[in-house]
Amino acid sequence: MSEIFKRDPVDVVVVGGGLSGLGAALTLVRARRSVVVIDAGNPRNAPAAHSHGYLTRDGAPPLELLRLGREEIRGYGGEIVSGAVESVARAGERLFRVTTAEGDRYAGRRLLITTGLVDVFPDIPGLHERWGNDVVHCPFCFGWELRDQALGVLATGPQATMQALMWRQWSSDVTLFLHTAPEPTDEQRQQLAARGVRVVGGEVTRVEVEDNKITGVRLSHGEVVPRQAIIVGPQFQARHRLLDGLGVEVVDHPMGIGRQVKAEPSGFTGVPGVWVAGNVADVTAGVMQSAASGVTAAATLNADLTQEDVALAVESMRTAASAGL
């Protein structure tokens, strides 16, 4: 018995409706490819009030960028579906089956996964609640808005010294909290001192918040160091679960800051028919890089589909000729 799908098979099913997924979908629908985007509706940057560094849209709310993108795709005939994808699998020689939590099934000739990543950072009271507001990680995303404020860099790994030195570009008042990280080397302490970065030892036990804003960092011995914003270097873990059964490879990021799906610059995973884009393939990608990676993946997806279209057409023509039609 043949499978029952929610709609006719499409050229590409895109799982994830962030900027990379929408960037890919827009490129594909303009190439007259049939596309379904399935989006769970929980973008990583939803807590942030504004998105920065996106040319011509600097300062736009992240959810507004997504709304505009969805409108553009629908305008070309693309379909956007709300739902959480539970599984993906092959469904015959030339199709993938994508199943949502509601039990709906979609079929596509190609699969593009743009499910993003999860930020993993210390379990310190007050930290998670302020994430994306005055607890941040990216200086290029938030540095201008936090310029000249009293900043605290929470050490979470070997990159902490470099983080503190980089954030010194945006403020002359930067404190590095060692927390549970190793002591800086003598050379690192000299660099920090030369740039006027204070180093504070002791475990951080709480981020103090009053009137919906950070006021300081509490240490294990009770001292509270006044701060206005906290910089943390999380581990970035790509959301790769859906791909695990398809044979893709997950690798450590070269900087040791997380794990991501191994893929070519085009987003091709090496598994026939399977592409990735955005943070699932590059945990350091910002909003513009993510959108651009979706466009790149779409172009190579289209080329791959074109080759298959031509091969099928030639096969059909030869079959017809041999039958004397």
Rank of each mutant, 00 (worst) to 15 (best):
M166V: 15
V120E: 09
R189A: 04
Q190T: 15
G157V: 07
A107W: 02
L176H: 14
L192T: 09
R189T: 05
T175W: 06
R105K: 00
T99G: 01
T100F: 08
L112G: 05
D104A: 15
G126K: 02
V136C: 03
P184Q: 03
R168H: 13
E183P: 00
G143W: 14
G157D: 13
V135F: 00
A181M: 13
L176R: 12
D134M: 03
L95R: 01
L95K: 01
V118I: 12
D186Q: 07
Q149C: 04
T156K: 08
H179I: 11
M166S: 14
P139T: 06
A107I: 02
A89Y: 03
T156I: 05
A193I: 04
T175G: 07
Y106P: 04
C141S: 08
T100S: 13
F142K: 04
V135H: 03
P122R: 05
P139S: 05
Q190D: 12
F177R: 13
A160R: 09
F140V: 00
G103R: 11
D119K: 14
A160V: 05
L111I: 00
L117M: 12
L192V: 09
G152L: 03
A150D: 15
N133S: 12
L154K: 11
T180W: 10
V98F: 03
P158M: 06
V136F: 06
F142Q: 11
M162P: 13
L165I: 11
G103W: 11
H128D: 14
C138I: 02
P182C: 01
F177S: 11
T156E: 08
D119G: 14
V153T: 09
E129Q: 10
Q191P: 04
D123Q: 12
G157F: 07
S171P: 08
R97T: 00
H137M: 03
F140S: 03
H179E: 10
E145I: 09
G108H: 01
T99V: 05
A164F: 09
Y106Q: 00
D104F: 11
P139F: 05
G108P: 04
D104S: 15
A164L: 07
D104W: 13
R94N: 12
A193D: 12
T115A: 01
R189V: 03
P182I: 00
L117T: 09
A155G: 11
D123V: 12
R147T: 08
R97I: 00
V88N: 06
T156M: 11
R97C: 03
A150G: 09
R97Q: 05
D148L: 11
W170S: 04
Q163K: 14
T185C: 05
G103H: 11
L95E: 02
L117A: 08
F142I: 01
E145Y: 11
P184V: 02
M162S: 15
Q163N: 15
E129D: 10
P184L: 03
R90T: 02
L146I: 06
N133L: 12
T161Q: 14
W170V: 06
Y106R: 00
G116T: 09
P125K: 02
D186C: 02
R94A: 08
